[in-house]
Amino acid sequence: MFDLTPEEWTAVQLSLRIALVATLVTLPFGIAVAWLLARKNFWGKALLDGLVHLPLVLPPVVTGYLLLIWFGRKGPIGAFLDDYFGIVFSFRWTGAALACGVMAFPLLVRAIRLSFEAIDRRLEDAASTLGANGFWVFLTVTLPLALPGVIAGMVLSFAKALGEFGATITFVSNIPGETQTISAAIYTLTQVPGGDAAALRLVVVAIAIALVALIASEWFARRAGTRYHGE
């Protein structure tokens, strides 16, 4: 029963690829925004904070539709990226990654921001008296100390991206082999007669991936934690 058909395999691989790309590509932006929100006071900070969190509270279909309007082939940003960089989002797996990245972004930023705020700023002062400028303080003190939070944020983001459904299906539809993720495949299977066994197989796969991700993140976070307090 647990032999996946080639189509199911494709959906699993596609899901993993989309979630991984979404997490890795949004990570630098997530770190930058989290740092701005944790450390800087600037005009429009509340607005940025609100924008970042919007996908968390908007109906996913709304987010997907906004992406379709802006990042579709004829949308202002989508047309620009297509003309100058040859990057196309609509009805491609890259679009699914974009939708997942946007939906997971608030979770990524929250986790990293919290860990930035928890860092003892006096260690950063110590680094600057030792000759480190702002950039090096960030790279050698702030970021390594925030590592457990960064990892937690990445796992949350990855898990969210794996499970994303509404925004993705609205933006890039449900095309087998291109944009059909595990979630979309399960949904499709439950809509056809006799799809239950296949749906169940994918459900088990989804649970297994989620568990592995959680255990891995615990392990990484604990390792990072003991490094600071033990040897």
Binding site: G131, P144, L145
Partner: peptide, 20 residues
Amino acid sequence: VPAHRRRIGYVFQEGRLFPH
């Protein structure tokens, strides 16, 4: 002159060694 260019060594009350 910013702190990182003053070349002034500073020993703090609580040490402030880098834990990582």
